[in-house]
Design a protein around this nucleic acid. Sequence first.
DNA 1: CAGTGAGCGAGCTTCCGCTTGACTT
Length: 958
Amino acid sequence: MSPTSETAQGGRRLVIVESPAKAKTIKGYLGPGYVVEASVGHIRDLPNGAAEVPAKYKGEPWARLGVNVDADFQPIYVVNHDKKDQVKKLKELLAESDELFLATDEDREGEAIAWHLQEVLKPKVPVRRMVFHEITKDAIREAVANPRELNKKLVDAQETRRILDRLYGYEVSPVLWKKVMPRLSAGRVQSVATRLVVERERERIAFRSAEYWDLTGTFATGRGGDASDPGTLAARLTAVDGRRVAQGRDFGSTGVLKDGSAVLHLDEANARALAAALADSAFAVRSVESKPYRRSPYAPFRTTTLQQEASRKLGFGAKATMQVAQKLYENGFITYMRTDSTTLSETAVQAARAQVTQLYGADYLPEKPRTYAGKVKNAQEAHEAIRPSGDRFRTPAETGLTGDQFRLYELIWKRTVASQMKDATGNSVTVKIAGRASDGRDAEFSASGKTITFHGFMKAYVEGADDPNAELDDRERRLPQVTEGDPLTAEEITADGHATKPPARYTEASLVKELEEREIGRPSTYASIIGTILDRGYVFKKGTALVPSFLSFAVVNLLEKHFGRLVDYDFTASMEEDLDRIARGEAQAVPWLRRFYFGSADGPEGSAADAGNGDGDHLGGLKELVTDLGAIDAREVSSFPVGDGIVLRVGRYGPYVERGEKDAEGHQRADVPEDLAPDELTVAYAEELLAKPSGDFELGTDPVSGNPVIARDGRYGPYVTEVLPEGTPKTGKNAVKPRTASLFKTMSLDTVTLDDALKLMSLPRVVGADAEGVEITAQNGRYGPYLKKGTDSRSLETEDQLFTITLDEALAIYAQPKQRGRAAAKPPLKELGTDPVSERPVVVKDGRFGPYVTDGETNATLRRDDDVETITPERGYELLAEKRAKGPAKKTAKKAPAKKATAKKATAKKTATKTAAKKTAAKKTTTAKKTTTAKKTTAKKTAAKKTATASAAAAPAE
DNA sequence: CAGTGAGCGAGCTTCCGCTTGACTT
């Protein structure tokens, strides 16, 4: 009975899949009576931030997490903003349907999407879960005919994974904001990825190169060379008097031989002496060893292997590869590109085999189809391998594709066809050559060759290599035909020096490969993981290499020391095991999460639920780790000794080197370029940096004083200053302070001129005196340009006025009553009527932190979604009500960690007592200051920092 | 990381996975 005939009697059925492209294909297989639509991925998720949290949960202590950690980790789900329209559409379609088929992918995430669909759509018609692993007419029809029930346990496993990731990310990231730098992030995947890159760099830093020498001999057989017999062979010295000559692999990372007694380490002098002693020696073939060579084709592509090969052969980054593949998928050229499976469907195998016969002949076709066992440990196998679509593969020429799409399709096509071809076979030969040196020593040389007698799959496809010096699989090396005892003459014997090399840095492709091997991340996220660690400034690219920043050293250092378990390389693998147990019903989600978050007094280790470091019996939960931060010494975590008393520190404004204590005699400090690779920071380089503080823009010499004038970026933004001659007293009663002045907002460090600087430094300008003879000056300050008369100061409107304002104008300003601050001087942006609670007029004002509503008593900043133009009075009252509700709750909730004395002096008495002197008090003042000066638009900073703020982004274009 | 002057409101950052357009350059 075909589905079509069923529907003739039934009614309309709605089938929901994940991808629109898939929906289109399936529609054709199911025919009329079936409506196929896509969910377009997940439709619901935990709220992203405060703005997305539903009103009724706002104010709850756990609202920022989106998970009620106090009530069995109950998650709050909201429909994703960009999925609202799609959900509406699905609801409408469901209203006209008699049956619902949830046909999302058959893996953990797919099952969860199906469940969320059911929760959101609330179907009143029968619901079926249907699954299929290949998109063919038969497979789809069979899936429709054999639906199953939703697997709630699998959904539980997904939800647990989601909650763990949220708790990890949203609890640990703020630790980094406090201890290292704002806006940083930590997460189960990105932090381990970053750690891998950092560890590799540490190995490179610790690496000590070893020098070793050997000999290369060119030996002639005496026969003439031709294509099949080269006549000469190049062989390397492998042993002297039976003792093997040391090669690179014999040395450890410290430059010392791993086993000094077993091998002979030749230095230059030894090697040259031996070469000389062999100059007139007679040589003969000592042995010839021939072994059959066999190589099997590579498995069809999955996401990671496609990314690796596209990188090696086409030079694509992971992201570019996925974008091109997406296009190919959408246009029906290839199967789904986010997969961890190397399995080909039966039709695909047949298509590949047909093409092998057609293009290469039956000789190249193995008797039986090849199958590839899943090499990926945690593969969910919801999809096929990546291959050309259809039951007959189009050759690249037939596709009509061009450019990158053509090249990627060709790669996929070749790999798929090759995967169904015969092994390549041939011979590998090792020839050993011996000679006696004039000093009596026996020298043995060795050469190896490879001949391929049957190319098999190599006709179609050979994999690339990461190392440009590595030989490709199909590379042949022919040796002359020799047999044991054949005499040879040495045409040339040269001594060659070599040095061992540090381990190579990761590339995008090799990092992704490493992550996959460690079961970290998923096919849909590999490319974006790289994007995340690049965006955060944890790594940067140097060519194709991923170089960790000093920032990432600080972050990884902190995580390793205080959250060791969370950045353990086995954490995810362990989590996956636990999740599998939950999916099988052998474990429960809530106790597992409880152990992860709240910890447990004892219990077996090894579960990902153990967030603590696992030292001793006590396993602290994540909450405990992020609550008491007193043990985390921010300074220590971001300090790295360079040597010679120099320390590298990662500060809020980037890395710098420092020698000595601040304010002490001989203290030195200098910025480190943001793109300096950590393994290039030597003591000598640090000295160089300290000798000449970087970041200075030399503008010229003040013609009056003769002092050099420089521009630099300071704590409060860009400024100009003069360099006083050596020996000028800086302290004491004869101290001379250099003239300094902040740049105007319209200026920037890379464009400011000497004239600008001199003009700026001429401030304050005496405008004149008032009737009583009190002097009025014009100057630039923290809050912008202003006039000063004794202790009475008035703001000016423009910076230009500093130079242009006349005495009369100044007196006119002073004639007016003093404004109570800038904010009060400004009229409200909007009036919103009377607040129903306080019964006071509500207005919108513009403040230091942007627009806010106030009733004169309570103030509330407008949220991201609010707009001054469109805000309604009701919204204004709501914001105020929220603020009132929230205010007191915060004041009593937390205990006072009493971090530093600065917390007291920095804030007004009112806040100091009322907000319980939170540890953020000290920080708050610095961030506030930073905000006012965040408008710095130096070329250096804007170029280096990816996280450009709105104000930084407003830098004048060049 | 310079060192000037007043008055005064914080809120947000962040995770991993599943999917595409909708945006601008």
